[in-house]
Design a protein around this nucleic acid. Structure first.
Ligand SMILES: [Mn+2]
Ligand SMILES: [Mn+2]
Ligand SMILES: [Zn+2]
Ligand SMILES: [Zn+2]
Lengths: 171, 171
DNA sequence: ACCTTATTGATAATGATTATCAATAGCAAT
DNA sequence: ATTGCTATTGATAATCATTATCAATAAGGT
């Protein structure tokens, strides 16, 4: 019975209690098992997974899921502003839960131009957010533009690639 | 003769004199007519053109150019840090000259989530750069990460889309 | 003008994302 | 718990930007 697969999927209590799931009821969308499963993986995987990454992980506990459903679920979550879609010119998109129910909240990124590694950092996040907030207010006014979200990314070369002259890309 | 097509392509004197072309000599790459043509278009088009946009414009003055050459030239320019490649999840990349020989220097972006419009802004660029520079120094130290470049983007809804409830996407 | 070899362009191949549509399963009402 | 309506799913085919190939061409040093 379906209870079975649900059981595995709903293990994460913090996720279960998070306001994330509220969106479904609010918007009249159905809270299905595949959607729970995708959200569950997103809440665990901090490594900016691709659609395939997510598909493979969901597939373990939910073998009948199709790749299409992962695509569609992610589209929905992005539309709701729950998930951020990244495009680092790798030919495929990457995804990340914006408000992690546990650990690592809002953060920015360092991106290695050689090995494509993506480093989450929060070193100076308060300082950054302070400026960003101030900027947003003024930009919204000057450009009559409603801001929902932002990205700050630094491109360069990571330590590994500098030291070893690494040239492999990570898939 | 080739002089003919060269003539049209090299019209832009500021571009011709800019240090951009120095890279070719320096790296042992050949300064070919197609490459000049692509650089010339990039120096004029501030609207974050796609490969096809650039191809079509170059094609006017240089009908024999192939799409592949545009791809390859852009790759090269990106590799040299002369051109920035954007990926706004439209299924195709967009490009922009980093140091415009004339007008609009370094800037950041507002991106409309509805119509996909990309707005260049420089309103508070000095203030932003001041923080960014400070951040870069400290991030480079903390993460042993050599920073070459950065992106700041704000996502939201533009005035047109707010007012008219616009829902068309621009290609 | 000649030679070497980087560059080009026509063409085919790849691979992520999107479109389709019949089968399935939330969930609200009974 | 059962029913009925309809959003959602998943298998499959289609799309389309980007890459791979390779023979023909042309930049630039001699
Ligand atoms: Mn991240
Ligand atoms: Mn721009
Ligand atoms: Zn690296
Ligand atoms: Zn808009």
């Amino acid at each position: 019975m379906i209870i079975n697969s649900n059981y595995k999927i709903m293990t994460n209590k913090k996720l279960l209690n998070s306001k994330l799931f509220q969106n479904f009821a609010d918007t009249g969308h159905r809270l299905t098992a595949p959607r729970k499963a995708v959200l569950n993986i997103l809440s665990k995987d901090m490594n900016h997974p691709t659609v395939e990454d997510i598909y493979l992980q969901v597939h373990k506990g939910y073998p009948s899921i199709g790749m299409m459903t992962v695509y569609r679920t992610l589209d929905l979550l992005v539309e709701w502003g729950i998930v951020h879609k990244f495009d680092f010119s790798e030919g495929k998109a990457r995804y990340e839960l914006i408000d992690h129910p546990e650990g690592l909240g809002h953060h920015h990124h360092l991106i290695c131009q050689k090995c494509k590694k993506i480093i989450n950092y929060t070193d100076f996040i308060n300082e950054e957010i302070k400026l960003i907030t101030k900027l947003e207010k003024r930009l919204e006014k000057n450009h009559k533009f409603k801001i929902n979200n932002h990205i700050i990314e630094f491109y360069g070369v990571c330590d590994d690639c500098t030291v070893t002259g690494n040239n492999k890309s990570i898939n």
